[in-house]
Each structure stands twice: as structure tokens, then as C-alpha cells.
Write a protein that binds this DNA or RNA. Structure first.
Lengths: 359, 359
DNA sequence: CGCGCAAGAAAAATCGATATATTCCGAGAT
DNA sequence: ATCTCGGAATATATCGATTTTTCTTGCGCG
């Protein structure tokens, strides 16, 4: 059955080669391989011949030619501040799972909070014809692209963007009630850097919840992570515990009249703990510390962190799902917001407030 | 000067549109825009007209069409075990720097040490026509691709692969001499998982250096990170401190007759410290701990880690440089190995050996 | 007997750029 | 007067798939 000129896998097999080998037209071969509906009329025997030859000659359709024709790339762009531990890694574990399932790959671009990059990378990726964008922890308002966008942990009610967010009210509530029930009344707060979308949103939730449970927020106990600290320094890891160390240290120089602190995230909480330790205070005996995110090292730092777990992997997964869905059905309606639920993880860094320095 | 049918940016501008608008041929326009050498003869005035129109109409060459013709994608594939903290993140910071400079993007693929993925992803990425591969901490021997490969921290003297490696002899030497000079004689060793290329290589260096400085390695003090522990568990972060916790705990159940341990990396060292703490031992007073890599959290864990710093960002940068160079000059000779220098970072997790339990 | 129809396949157009070959024209050489 | 050469550009082939259109051929049926 095998024709004469067999066994010459010379060079690369493309559709033409394959068709010639089969003594069929490219059209027929293409229709069969794509299992196209307009190939109904092709008899099974021919199909089998085609499929068999394709696998035997190890035919691989050319990605560019195919994409050029279909104008889709089977890849998405991921825009994130950095490749930091915890946030990026956790979210991406969920994202990758979905993308892989759909035979999608992704380009990563880190903007390091530089305005030019935030503008430039989306454009460059659009030129690479990504089918959609996934924004991690990055404001979506400035990003205007002709493809679907899903923003994880942004809060931008923007056309074309689906926001995957945490229920911040609940998150803050569970953390503050935990501290309140442990007897803490003088609680310090470490706000996130201005650039991060969650920062303000979280802070508003804190103010709201504090009001609801009757907790007074002393403005002098509110500190803030300095965004510029790491954006300027080169070669430095963008989101290191250092960012929590500095402001904690500054607070301690002013006052020690507080029994707990609620940090913006786990990384900064780890830095804060170190600052507390360095100034002779014990965690949690003197000061209870609550983090946010529940990254891997939260469980393994000393003391292990009580923290509000964000279901980051799940958020990534849901985000990717929605994005792929939107890519597949460009005209269909889509959710503008998906809310996920937090969970308090109690570990070693919190304990009942000592009365020693209570007001 | 503007022709009649102006001001219709209808649809997308491609080369044909642009050429028609300029009343020139596509060829001419293309030659000018690419500043091709065979366009020497085109007068400056024409060039200016073309360039001006291109910017004004915001012409963007189609990525697929261009890539199809030139058969190169301006992107590389990065193959790594996972998106773990520390290793991946650090290496990539160097990689990204170089790639960005050259207008390259990258696809990331995590194989999670699954054999099928290690075989599959390179193929899939080749189909996406990546111009080259960067392997992180992944053996290169099984990867057969028709494009240049640079392996970071692999040790595969394989055709087509450039290895970027650490001077392990020196790395081990500096660590062991540090411990030796602190008076440690009974030193435990935590070997890396079998899958990681560095593991065996490092171990051989340890044996060699131990011989050179006259240190006896007690086989009963040698433990090993269990590779299968995390490859099977789903949803678990692949390289968590847990991997160091378990074997340390197992060792402690057998014996406490050692004053120091040299861990495979910082992550496992952090886990080991926790196991030591949990069994009532103090670090470094009872047991000194040395890590490897110097990841970010090494400095911020408690106690901060004494560790051998790998210049990971630099390795990534050099790797990317070489890869881009090899892509640009496919036929030129290339280095098969580039060795980088380690550096010992002494922090809190090591101190002089107590004589309490010396042999 | 010829018409319409469908099965089965092929030819040709298309996607948008780049590479190669070709034309046209006028100046200078033979 | 012919030939060559180079400037200034154009026409055409090519990359490799997908999509649309077109062409046979056999067969049932009026």
C-alpha cells in the first residue's frame, strides 16, 4: 500500500509535502486534520490515510501560518508588578492550570510600577497578538487594548475588564474581630503602598469595619509602606520584608502604646516582626501581628503568622477561566466582577492582649 | 501635499493600505521601514514620506506575517520546575533584563518534575517557534530541540547546550571551612532531591572538599530531601520549607550527636531550623545551620541564615546574553560552560560549636 | 436523453509581510 | 549606435496554513 517514494523525512514536513506524499490536495488534508465540518463528505478511508501519514511523518502545522490565517495566537499576556514570592507565584499556579488545559501559553511582563512600562508592555503584547490580558495587582484603568482583560485584585469598574476581587469587608472583619476578641483595643495599621490597587480599598474596609465593631482607629498608629522605597532601588527585590521593617521601626520610635498591628501583607508583616524583635519586643506576647495573603512562608516564619488567607490560586484559576471564556466568545456578555471569600488562619503571631500597656 | 482620500483610518492599516495611501509599492515601503541595505538607492525624500505616513497612520507590522517569513519569533521558552520563590524569581530578574533589552519576550513552562511535561513542553514551545530555550535547574540531556539551549544550574555536557554553573567546589569549600573554623566536626548534610541537577554535583564537591580539609563525613548524619514528597501532592507549593522539616525531624529522632548542618538550599534550611526549634534545640547555639542560594527570605527569617550566595540574577543575565548571542549567530562557536563564583554570607544561624556534645 | 444534485476532491484566494527578480530610464563608455 | 551601469522603483514569488470557489463524476429521475 505504501507508495514508491517512501521513507524520506527530508527537511521539514509541511502541508504541501504531506499532501504530495499522500497524492491528495492540501485542502483535503487540512480539512481532515482539522476535523472541519465541511469535510463530512470525505470517506473514512481517506481520513485514515491522512491521519496515519500525518502522525507517521510527524507533521506539525506551522504556528505562524496558522495564526496568521486565524488571527489568534493561543497565548495571553500576564502583566504583573514583579515576579514576587507569594502573590505572583500563588496566583499563577491557578492560572497555569487553566491555560494549560486550553493549550494556551503566556507571556509575562513585569512593569515594576514604572508608568512607561505599564503603558508600553500592553502595546507590545498586543503587537504579538496575545488573545487576552491577565492583570495581576495592577490597575486596569490605563490599559486600553482590543482584547479581553481580566484583572485580579484590581478594582476598576472599566469597560472590557472583569475584576476578580476578594471580599475585603469580610476579610478585614474576620481579622479585626479576631484581634478584638483577644482583647486588643489599641491596634496599629500598616497601609499598603499607594500604587497597589488593594491598598486604598482595604483601608476603606478597615475604617468601615472598625466603625461597625466600635473600634477606634488612632491616626498616630497608622503607618504606611513607602512605595518609592523599592521602585527606585535597583537590583533590590521589589517586595522584601524590608518594606515592613522601616515603617514599623519608625512607629516604634514614636510610641509603643499598642498591642497589635494589622499589616498589609505577609511579607511586610515578617519585616514588622523583625523590627519588633530588634527593638526588644516579643511577638505575640507584647505585640500581636496579623498578616494578609497567607503566602507559603507565613507558615514557616518564626513565629508563624496569623493571617487572612486570600484564595490566590483560586482567584487565578477563576480569572483564567473567565478570560478563556471571553476569548472564545468575544461577543457574549461577561461578568464585570467576581468576588471570592477570605479565611482567617490563626497561627502563633497573635495572642490575648496583655494588660501591661493597655490604655 | 496631502492627497485627496485622506483621514480614513478605517480598519487596520497593513502594508498594502499604507503603500496604496503613499502611492508606492509595498516593496518600497517595506524596504524603507526595515532600513534594509538594498534600499540604499531610495532618496531621502521618499524615505521621509514613508516614515512620516507610517507613524501618522500608526502602522504596526503584523507579527505573524513577519515571523512566518523570517521564521523567528523574537521569543524564547523558559523551562523551570516551578515558579518557586528564590530560585526562579532571582534568576529571572537577570534574564528579563537582557531579554527586554533585545525586545524579546518569553514563555514560561513549569514541568513540576513530571517526565511527560519535561518532554512535552519543549516540543510545544518549538511548535510556537521559540528562538531558543533557557533551562532553569532542569537537566538538559533529554531535551532535543533544533534551537540553541542555555541551561542554568544544569551539568549536562551536551551538544547544543551552554551550561551556566556555579563553582561548586569553591562554594562548598567556603561553607565547610567556615564551619570547620568555628570548631564544628560533626556536621550533618542534607542532600538535594535526586531530580535536581545540582544535587549530586554538590554532593560530590562536599565529599571532595571534606577530604581536602580532613573532615570526616558520618554517613548516618547524611539525610536527603525526598523528591517524591512534593511531586505527588497537588495544590502544595513544590519547594516549601516542609521539604527540609521532614528529613530533619527524622534525623533528630535517630541522633542529636551533631553540631551543625549544611542544607541543600535556604528553603530547606528554614524548614530544618523549624524542626530543630520544635524539638527544643536552639539555632545556632545547639546546632549551626548553613543554607545555600541566599534567597530573599534568608536574610529575614529568624534567625537569619548563614548561606552560600549564588549570583542567581547574574547567572540568569549571563545565560540570557549567551542565548541571544547564539540566536543571532547560529553558526558561530559558543561556550559550552560558564562558571560563576559563590560568596559566603555569614548571618545569625552559625556560631562556634559548643563543646557540650562534641565527640 | 439530459437535468440536477451530491459526493469527492482540487484549484485558487487569502492572511501580511519579506526576498528576489525585473523594469524603466538616462548617463557615460565603446 | 549599441552596450553597460546604476538609480528608483515595481512585479512577483514565497512563507504555510485555512477558506472559498470551482471542477469532475456518477447516479437517480422525469
Amino acid at each position: 500500500m505504501a507508495r514508491g517514494k517512501d521513507g524520506q523525512p527530508s527537511g521539514h514536513v509541511n502541508l504541501r509535502t504531506l499532501a504530495e506524499h499522500l497524492e491528495l490536495s492540501q485542502t483535503t488534508v487540512s480539512l481532515v486534520l482539522n476535523n472541519s465540518p465541511s469535510a463530512k463528505s470525505i470517506p473514512q478511508e481517506t481520513r485514515n490515510r491522512v491521519l496515519e501519514a500525518a502522525t507517521r511523518l510527524n507533521y506539525r502545522p506551522n504556528y505562524f501560518a496558522r495564526s496568521l490565517r486565524q488571527s489568534r495566537s493561543m497565548s495571553v499576556g500576564v502583566l504583573a508588578p514583579d515576579l514576587s514570592e507569594g502573590y505572583f507565584t500563588s496566583v499563577m499556579s491557578g492560572v497555569v492550570q487553566e491555560l494549560t488545559r486550553a493549550h494556551y501559553f503566556y507571556f509575562t511582563a513585569c512593569h515594576d510600577w514604572k508608568q512607561e512600562h505599564i503603558e508600553q508592555y500592553p502595546r507590545m503584547l498586543v503587537e504579538r497578538a496575545v488573545d487576552g490580558f491577565l492583570l495581576l495587582n495592577t490597575p486596569a484603568d490605563q490599559i486600553a487594548v482590543p482584547v479581553p482583560v481580566v484583572a485580579i485584585s484590581a478594582h476598576s469598574p472599566v469597560e472590557n475588564v472583569t475584576n476578580i476581587i476578594l471580599d475585603h469587608h469580610k476579610a478585614v472583619e474576620t481579622a479585626l474581630i479576631h484581634l478584638y476578641e483577644l482583647g486588643h483595643r489599641r491596634i496599629a495599621f500598616m497601609r499598603g503602598p499607594r500604587a497597589i490597587p488593594d491598598s486604598d480599598y482595604r483601608w476603606r474596609s478597615i475604617q468601615q469595619v472598625a466603625g461597625e465593631i466600635g473600634l477606634r482607629i488612632d491616626p498616630s498608629l497608622v503607618i504606611r509602606i513607602d512605595a518609592t522605597a523599592w521602585s527606585t532601588k535597583t537590583g533590590q527585590h521589589p517586595m522584601a520584608p524590608e518594606i515592613g521593617y522601616k515603617p514599623m521601626q519608625a512607629l516604634l520610635e514614636r510610641t509603643r502604646d499598642f498591642t497589635a498591628i494589622f499589616c498589609f501583607n505577609d511579607i511586610s508583616a515578617i519585616g514588622a516582626i523583625r523590627a519588633l524583635r530588634d527593638s526588644g519586643l516579643c511577638v505575640p506576647q507584647d505585640v500581636s501581628v496579623v498578616g494578609f495573603d497567607d503566602i507559603q512562608s507565613a507558615a514557616y516564619s518564626t513565629p508563624s503568622l496569623t493571617t487572612v488567607r486570600q484564595p490566590l490560586a483560586e482567584m487565578g484559576q477563576r480569572g483564567a477561566q473567565v478570560l478563556l471564556e471571553r476569548i472564545a466568545h468575544r461577543e457574549a456578555p461577561y461578568p464585570s466582577e467576581i468576588v471570592t471569600a477570605p479565611e482567617l488562619v490563626v497561627r502563633e503571631s497573635t495572642c490575648p492582649a496583655s494588660t501591661r500597656m493597655a490604655n
